[in-house]
Design a protein around this nucleic acid. Sequence first.
DNA 1: GTAGGATACTGAACATCGTTCAGCGAAGCA
DNA 2: TGCTTCGCTGAACGATGTTCAGTATCCTAC
Lengths: 204, 204
Amino acid sequence: MGITERRAREKDDLRRQILATATEMFVAEGYESVSMRKIAERIEYAPSTIYLYFKDKGEMVASICYDTFAELERRMEKIRVLELPPMETLRRSLREYLEFALENRSAYSFVMSPPVAVISSLDPKTFESIHEVALQAFDRLRTGMRLCMEAGEIAPGDLEAKVQATYLFVHGVALGLNYNCGFPFIDKDILLEHVLDRVLGSLK
Amino acid sequence: MGITERRAREKDDLRRQILATATEMFVAEGYESVSMRKIAERIEYAPSTIYLYFKDKGEMVASICYDTFAELERRMEKIRVLELPPMETLRRSLREYLEFALENRSAYSFVMSPPVAVISSLDPKTFESIHEVALQAFDRLRTGMRLCMEAGEIAPGDLEAKVQATYLFVHGVALGLNYNCGFPFIDKDILLEHVLDRVLGSLK
DNA sequence: GTAGGATACTGAACATCGTTCAGCGAAGCA
DNA sequence: TGCTTCGCTGAACGATGTTCAGTATCCTAC
């Protein structure tokens, strides 16, 4: 019965190839500039073939989002297992988060704030699964910060406010540095260190 | 010679009406979902008429950006002329900035990070004028923070790093709160106060 | 070995999009 | 009253996302 398996494998391969090509193009040229026809041409299939693998353009975006979140999650987990002191873990995680955002440039912005039209066109099940993986990442931050608070490294108080603000700060830096608007930002390393100092320092 | 004046006035009125309608629709339905045809239908003119007032869709966006920045600038200036102590001015300005972003919901996100495709389609002159007004707003923040530093209310050190990080923090909060992703943020007022405390507290 | 069905893919079509342009009607000037 | 100018339109073009009837290829069963 190896035939059906081979078929499934081939089908999966093409799906992956479509996704890889699409991701590359979205990031390089922007969501709106990349048409289904262009993707099809690049992979040398008819445009309609893509619709055998993805319901529509929005579902491709959803898949990309999901994969990116998963990769981010993996990198965070790699730090957690080091079992460093909680504050050290927190600092390293935030730094890794920012570096991930900078490495993945426009992919980050794309995944973290896709066009509203895309989001609202998603079917509820797909939306839910993305929402879940995002909340999970947020939960990781919350847990990490709770540990810091319990260790007395973060001043006691409204944990949720601290967590949400911390996320928004870091997210703002990630988005801002990625958004290529021609603004003359200072040296990224200096800025990042300063950001981490202030974000974490204000938690004491 | 009142005739040409009346004509000019009428022309200006229609331009303003197009822009007002477009802004409203972009904010409500998102940039991509609003077509030139829909705007035309709403103002009860032919689609091609819009092109007599705006070079293309991108130029409409540019105008909206420009106007929004101008409005923000006005609100900042209103605080500056109060001539409060520098740190008080800074806090009020940042708060006003965040409130402006929250009042104008998606307009803020739209103006602060329009689709890349839109930006790159702008003619250089238009782009430059928007860039300039944005830099001007940033300059205002820099000046305000320099005054605080000179008054000894901000610890001495790399001013530019402090200014850029401060902006990115506040920008992140503004964008994050506006992006309607279904995330369960805590009470906005509590979060905002916490944010201001941390952003400003970490400058001491 | 061949009929029959499943599978993978295609090409043409549809509605809609941003945008252009020749031309129309009315308003003002001579 | 003729002429020019001005504001506006309707039809058209190419490109978009998406659908669907149909084709060609492969696998199974007789």
